[in-house]
């Protein structure tokens, strides 16, 4: 993305990173996308409650700044692998919410033609190689994509999103090691929301900060407040620059929180109402970003209202699109197992 002009940049010299780096238009678009993620998930949750969507889903409400901040310096050609909590990553990388809703409704117009659902949402055209139902499953795949980038000299950077739970999977350690020894253009992004399902990182993980594990693989380990968009985007910028320069991988630990439970089966017995309330009231990433934008003069109340209205309309349209879309024919249940050959 293009940076802001020099004159504008000078007037923002004391502002946090993103306000120096990006234009007002780009930054308000970030707010738009953060709302889109939030309202998409609220809409999906409501459709689930009303019985319009079956299965389960893992909501990332509260983690929007992390997805948006990491994806900010990526180009459309750059690639990501995502997680079971991947709706935000998908939207941040450029997906259309109507095709995401269609996938959740199991329709042929969905990104996976109704075969994947929430847990396998992908948008290959925009570089999202897919969410993943296996914790840590996407990490070695991202390293493989980065190996392709290096071997084919495409210049692509690959981001692997995963949660705190994945940092105790063998795949995490094997993948980080290979990325380090081969100096691959990959960024490992651990979105640490404090709990792997019900088990807190304090109970599951032998280091205080997951970023400390980077030292074991001789790569930078960076901790950011995952609820502050500017902090996340700045760390991502540096990691992307390092990757593009051929200097190898970075591990970013983005400390954040999910407002909702792990999935639809969560009875919330492992954290207190006070804890959740504190994160929602005092550290909500959209509220934080919105007040900064307002404070630094990038947007006013009217602008915010316009974004909220536009998002509400997109969500309503997306759900209507999904409802109206055709369901797959049960006779096609065996499609896409193998590549159709002439």
């Amino acid at each position: 993305m293009a940076g802001a002009s020099k004159a504008v940049t000078d007037s923002r010299a004391n502002l946090p990173f993103v306000y120096r780096q990006y234009s007002a238009e780009q930054l308000t678009e970030v707010l738009h996308k953060m709302y889109l993620i939030r309202r998409f998930e609220e809409g999906a949750e409501e459709c689930y409650t009303r019985g319009l969507i079956h299965g389960t889903m893992h909501l990332s409400i509260g983690q929007e700044a992390s997805a948006m901040g990491i994806c900010m310096p990526l180009t459309e050609d750059d690639q990501i692998t995502s997680t079971h909590r991947g709706h935000g990553h998908c939207i941040a990388k450029g997906a259309e919410v109507k095709r995401m809703f269609a996938e959740f409704f199991g329709k042929t117009t969905g990104y996976c033609k109704g075969r994947g659902g929430s847990m396998h949402i992908a948008d290959v055209g925009k570089g999202n190689l897919g969410a993943n139902g296996i914790v840590g499953g996407g990490i070695p795949i991202a390293v493989g994509a980065a190996l392709s980038s290096k071997m084919m000299k495409t210049g692509k950077v690959v981001v692997s999103f995963f949660g705190d739970g994945a940092n105790n999977e063998g795949a995490f350690h094997e993948a980080l090691n290979m990325a380090a020894i081969w100096k691959l253009p990959v960024i490992f992004v651990c979105e640490n929301n404090g709990y792997g399902m019900s088990t807190s990182t304090a109970r599951s993980t032998g280091v205080k900060n997951i970023a400390e594990r980077a030292a074991a693989y001789s790569m930078p380990g960076v901790i950011v407040n995952g609820n502050i968009f500017s902090e996340v985007a700045e760390a991502s910028h540096q990691a992307v620059a390092r990757a593009r320069a051929g200097e190898g991988p970075t591990l970013i630990e983005s400390k954040t929180y999910r407002h909702r439970g792990h999935s639809k089966s969560d009875r919330n017995r492992y954290r207190t109402k006070e804890e959740i309330e504190d994160w929602m009231s005092n550290r909500d990433p959209i509220t934080l970003f919105e007040s900064e934008l307002r404070e630094f003069g990038f947007i006013d109340d009217k602008g915010i209202e316009a974004i909220r209205d536009a998002v509400a309309q997109e969500i309503a349209d997306g759900i209507e699109f999904a409802k109206a879309s055709p369901a797959p024919d049960v006779r096609d249940a065996g499609n896409y197992v193998y590549t159709e050959q002439a």
Binding site: V143, G144, A145, L147, S148, G170
Partner: peptide, 15 residues
């Protein structure tokens, strides 16, 4: 595990 995954990821992206 990691090696097989790297091969899968490389195959997925054109190699």
């Amino acid at each position: 595990l990691g090696g097989a995954g790297v091969a899968v990821g490389a195959a997925l992206t054109g190699m």
